[in-house]
Design a protein around this nucleic acid. Structure first.
Lengths: 203, 203, 203, 203
DNA sequence: CATGAATGAGCTTTCATTCAT
DNA sequence: TATGAATGAAAGCTCATTCAT
C-alpha cells in the first residue's frame, strides 16, 4: 500500500474527535487518543506528525471554510452600508454560515469553536465576535449616517451581543449532533436576537 | 497562632482567585498560587488538602448562595404557575440573582461559571441551564393550563434559550470586572431575551 | 534555605560530568544523570531548567575563558605580523591557553572540546582549528612578505596541522586528569610540532 | 534469487556507508538507511540482524585487515629490536598501513576510526594507540639495550604521541575523501612526528 | 522475499503532592 | 507550623525492532 491504512487513520480521527470534544487542546492526551483508537502511542505518530497536526487535521477544513464565508460576509457588509436596517439580513447570513459549515463538519466545527484553547486556533472565536460586533454596530446605527457616533456603552453592548451570539451558537453546536435540530435552534436563536433588537427602541 | 494563619489563608485565597480567573481548573498551577501568595508550595497543603479543596473554598460560598437563590426562584415559580405571562418577571429574578451574587462575589462567580472544567463543579452551568429551562417552558405555556403539553421541539428550544442565557451571562462576567457595566449588560441581555420572546408569537 | 541544597547540586554536576565525559550531548541521558546522582529524574529540573542548561552550567565558564584567551591571541597575532618566525611563540601561547584553562576546569574543558556534538557549542572545536590554522600559515610564510601566496596544498596542510594540534590536545585532556601530567604532555606535544616544522625545510 | 538479493545487500551497504560517515553509531538511523537504500524498514532486517551487525558488515573487513597489518608490524618490531633507531621506518610502516587500507576501504576505515562510539568497536582506536605506543617506546630506547628502563613519564609520552598520531590520522580521514590528498597529508603528518622526535634530543 | 504498520521502551520535561527537617 | 527538596506519574515524542500479510 502507498497510503497508511485508512481504517486506522479513521479510528484515530474518530478517537481524536471524541477526545477533543471533551478536552481543550492542551488537556487532550495523545495516549488516550491512541488507546481509544485501539493502537499504541507510537503508532499515532506514523499518521500525524504531532498533536498540533492531528488537531489541525480535524479543524483546518472547517477553519478555512469559515474564513471564506466570513470574508464574503464582510464584503457584503462593506458593499451595502448605504443605510437601511439590514440587521436581519446579516444575521441570516451568519446563520447560513453556521448551518452550512455544520452540515459538512458538525463535530469539527464544535471543536474549533469550543476546544481550541492552547492551539493556534484560539483566536477564532474572538475573530468571529469582532466581525459580528461590526454587524451589531451596523444594526444600532441603521438609518443614521455615521457609525462613529456610537457611545462607548453602545460599543460595549455591540460586543456583548456579538459575544453572546457566538457563545450561544457554540452551545447549540456542543449540545446537538442532529443537523435538523441545530438548524432549527440556530434559526430560533438568531431570530430572537433579531426580534429583541427590532423592538428595542420601539416597545 | 490563629491570626497569622488567617492572614496566610487570605493571601492564598487571593492568589488562587487571580490564578483561577485566568486559568481553567486543570491548567491552574498550585506552584504559581503559592508563590503569588508569598508562601511555599508545601505550606499551601496545610490550609487546603489539595487543589480541589482550594477551588472549593473559593467557589462553594457562591455556589451555595446560587443554589439558595435558585431554590427560591423555583418555589416562586411553582407557587404562581396559575397563569399569566410571568416571563419577564422570572427573567428579572434571574437577573437579580446574578447581580446579587455578583455584588458579593464577583470574581468567585466568574470562576464558578467559567473555570470549573476539570473540577467537580463542571455541572453547575448545566444545573443552572436546567432550572432556567423550566422558566422558559413557563414562558412558552403562559396563559395555558398545563406545561406537559410541550412538544419535544419546544423543550429543546427552552433548553437552548436557557443555555444561551447562561452562556451569555458567563461571557459578560468573564469580560467585565466593573459592577455597573456588568449590571447594565446583563440587563440589556436579559431584556433582549424578554423582547425576543414577547414578540415571538405576535410579530 | 535560600539556595537549593548545595550538595545535591554538586552531585548532579558530578554525575553530569561523568555522563558527558562518556557521551555526546545528544546521547547523554538525564535519567542516567539523575540516578547516578542518587536523585529522581524530576528533581534535576529543580536545579537546572533543562539538559541544555545543565550542559551549559558545566561548560560555559570554560567557554568564556577560552573566547577571552583566544581574542588575546588573535590580537597579539595581528599586532606582530611584521615578519620573523614567531611560530614557537604563538604555539606557546596556545599551550599557555590550554594549560591555564585546564588548571581551572580540567573536565569541563574536556567536555567542551569533545562532547558538544548536538549542543550549541558544537562549533567550538572548528573555531579553534580555524584560529590555529592562521597561526600555522604564519609559520609557513615566516620571513616572506605576504601570505596570500600560499598554495592550496599549503592551506590544506595548515588546516591539517591545526586540526591535529587541536585533536591532540583534546586527546591529552581526555586521557589525563592530573594537571602536571597534562602540562608536560601538552608541552611536549606542542614542542614536537615546533621542531617538526622547524626542520621541515632544513633537514 | 541470489542476484537480486545481492543487489539489495549492496544498496543497503552503500546507504549505511553514507549514514555512518555522517553520524556516530548511536545517532545513525536504520530508517534513514533503509529509505536511502530504496527499501523498506523491515526488509533491512532480512539482510542484517540489527544495527550492530550492519555496522559490523561495513567495518569488520577493514578491522581484520587492520589487525593483520598491525600484527605484522608488531612482528617486525619484535624481530628487529636489536638496536638502531628505526623510528622513521616504523612510522613509515604505520603510514603504509593507513594508506594501504585507505586505498581499499577509504570510507569504511574512516567510519571504523571515527564513528564507532556506541558500538563494540569503540576500543579499536585505543588498540591502535597501544600498538603505536610500543613503536614510540622503541624510538625512545633506540640504541639502548632494553626498554623496561623507561620511566613512567616516558611511557606516558609514548602513549600521548601514539594517541595524537592516531587522532591526527583519524582527522585527516574524516576531513578528506580524495586519496591523493589523504596520502599527502598523512605523509606530512607522519614526517612531522619523525622530525619532531629526531631533533628532540639533538636540538 | 518484501512490505510497512505496529510495538514498546526509551527519551526530556512538568507538576500535584508528600515529607524530612 | 513552615519550608522547600523530593517524589512519581504523566505528558509528547522517537526509533530500533518485530510481524502479519
Amino acid at each position: 500500500m502507498q497510503t497508511l491504512k485508512e481504517d486506522v487513520r479513521q479510528s484515530i480521527l474518530r478517537a481524536a474527535l471524541r477526545e477533543f470534544k471533551s478536552h481543550d487542546y492542551t488537556d487532550a492526551s495523545m495516549r488516550r487518543i491512541a488507546s481509544e483508537a485501539g493502537i499504541t502511542t507510537g503508532n499515532i505518530y506514523r499518521y500525524y506528525k504531532n498533536k498540533e497536526e492531528l488537531f489541525e487535521a480535524l479543524v483546518k477544513p472547517v477553519y478555512e471554510k469559515l474564513i471564506e464565508y466570513v470574508l464574503n460576509l464582510k464584503k457584503e457588509l462593506d458593499r451595502s452600508y448605504t443605510g437601511g436596517n439590514h440587521g436581519l439580513k446579516y444575521l441570516n447570513m451568519v446563520e447560513d454560515t453556521v448551518i452550512g459549515l455544520f452540515d459538512a463538519y458538525s463535530a469539527e466545527l464544535t471543536i474549533l469553536m469550543n476546544r481550541s484553547a492552547g492551539s493556534k486556533y484560539v483566536q477564532v472565536k474572538s475573530d468571529m465576535v469582532k466581525l459580528i460586533a461590526t454587524i451589531m454596530e451596523d444594526v444600532f446605527t441603521s438609518g443614521r449616517d455615521n457609525a462613529d457616533k456610537l457611545t462607548i456603552q453602545q460599543r460595549q453592548s455591540a460586543l456583548m451581543l456579538a459575544g453572546t451570539v457566538v457563545e450561544g451558537i457554540c452551545l447549540i453546536l456542543r449540545e446537538h449532533e442532529d443537523g435538523e435540530t441545530v438548524k432549527r435552534l440556530v434559526n430560533e436563536f438568531i431570530f430572537l436576537y433579531y426580534l429583541g433588537n427590532e423592538h428595542r427602541f420601539t416597545p
